[in-house]
Amino acid sequence: MGMPDWVIWLMIPWFLFMIWFLSTGGYFMFRKFLKGMPKKDGKSDLDWQQYYIEKTHHLWSEEQKALLEELVQPVPQLFRDTAKQTIAGKIGELVVKENGKQLNEDFIIRGYIMATPKRDHKWLVETLERKQIDLTPYRELLQ
């Protein structure tokens, strides 16, 4: 008395889906784990990211937060907060390293370009063109 054939055919896609699902989750968990590993200075990438966010938190205005929110719109909702944190950390790093006294649009755009993969730059260019912001100073970073 064996299993009906239809059950076996139902199980094969289910197992393939589960393998794909678990490996995708494992990939993202492993990336997060690596970012949490301490570097030579004793701090991890996540520690530095949090440091720069806390150091520059008071510099963000509501319109600058709205610009960042608009720039991360193409990111799926599930990952949007993480993307905002990563980008804000890079923006904060730029402000701190350049001794910026206030946060401006230039820092936000450069931080976004540096913190995101090239495939996301298309959305940035479209958004900036729609807002009529000159892209000339950022051409080198976008290449």
Rank of each mutant, 00 (worst) to 15 (best):
M1E: 11
M1K: 12
D5C: 04
D5K: 15
W6V: 04
M11D: 02
I12L: 10
I12H: 12
W14R: 02
W14N: 00
F15H: 04
F15M: 14
F17Q: 03
F17Y: 15
I19R: 10
F21Q: 12
L22W: 05
L22A: 12
G25Q: 10
M29L: 15
R31E: 05
R31S: 03
L34K: 08
L34E: 01
K35Q: 08
K35V: 04
G36K: 08
M37N: 00
P38Y: 09
P38V: 07
D41H: 04
K43I: 10
Q50S: 13
Y52R: 01
I53N: 00
E54L: 11
E54R: 14
W60T: 01
E62R: 13
A66E: 14
A66W: 00
L68K: 08
E69P: 05
L71I: 00
V72E: 04
P76M: 03
P76S: 14
Q77M: 14
L78S: 10
L78D: 06
R80Y: 03
T82Y: 08
Q85T: 06
T86C: 09
T86V: 15
G89A: 10
I91L: 12
I91S: 04
G92H: 07
E93V: 04
V95H: 06
V95W: 04
K97S: 10
G100C: 07
N104E: 15
G111D: 04
Y112S: 02
Y112L: 09
Y112D: 00
I113E: 05
I113R: 08
I113T: 05
M114P: 01
M114Q: 15
A115M: 11
R119K: 13
K122Q: 14
T127A: 15
L128N: 12
R130D: 11
T136M: 13
P137C: 00
E140H: 14
